[in-house]
């Protein structure tokens, strides 16, 4: 008969005892699965990672923030000067050296965010601004603290402030107005 083995000799005797693994069971736990929907079956999966993030060649910038210093880069060949540091020049590809940036500048552009990524939702509304500095070719992205959306404007004089208790992230520096602030007249 198909599907039925015919026992013979020694193996015939074994087949009559219970299988060896019959009593083995996977331990049961109380942890369940959060289910959102049955058709199609949608469940919750948690996804979190602690990441060992090295600032590597950018480290001196973050260390500098703790000392109240703003550090940028200058290309050793073409002398292009960067407000946001980078180890290699975007213009010519050569290496850069560290330079110290002025602690005062102007708003090059700005926005007020009312929504955001999950990590920053609780901080809304907040202002983002790109800061320009005299003698420096590129910009720095930062939080601009103080003015409301109606008070922000391109060209506003601003100055850097630093957290006392450093978090060693780029929000250790933030900018505030360095001039009287009033309701803006134009659109930007």
């Amino acid at each position: 008969m198909p599907g039925k083995e015919v026992p013979s000799g020694k193996s015939a005797a074994k087949a009559q005892t219970k299988p060896r693994y019959d009593k083995i069971k996977l331990p049961e736990t109380d942890e369940g699965t959060m289910v959102f929907n049955l058709d199609p079956l949608i469940i919750k999966q948690h996804y979190a990672i602690d990441y060992l993030h090295s600032y590597a060649e950018d480290s001196p910038f973050f260390a500098g923030l703790a000392e109240g210093k703003l550090r940028g880069s200058e290309c050793i060949k073409c002398h292009y000067r960067y407000a946001t540091p980078r180890a290699c020049c975007m213009q010519c590809g050569k290496k850069t050296k560290w330079i110290e940036l002025p602690l005062a500048g102007r708003i090059h552009s700005w926005t007020t965010c009312y929504f955001g990524s999950e990590a920053f939702l609780k901080e809304t509304p907040f202002n983002l601004a790109l800061i320009e500095f005299d003698g420096i070719n590129t910009l720095l992205l930062t939080r601009l603290i103080g003015p409301t959306q109606e008070e922000m404007r391109v060209g506003m004089k601003v100055r850097a402030k630093f957290r006392r208790n450093s978090k060693f992230d780029p929000t250790d520096v933030y900018f505030v107005p360095d001039e009287p602030v009033a309701r803006r007249e134009g659109a930007v």
Partner: peptide, 13 residues
């Protein structure tokens, strides 16, 4: 880390 949000970046542009 400053407030990563693409709509914010495009708003500044």
């Amino acid at each position: 880390p400053v407030g990563g949000f693409y709509s914010g970046y495009y708003a500044m542009m």
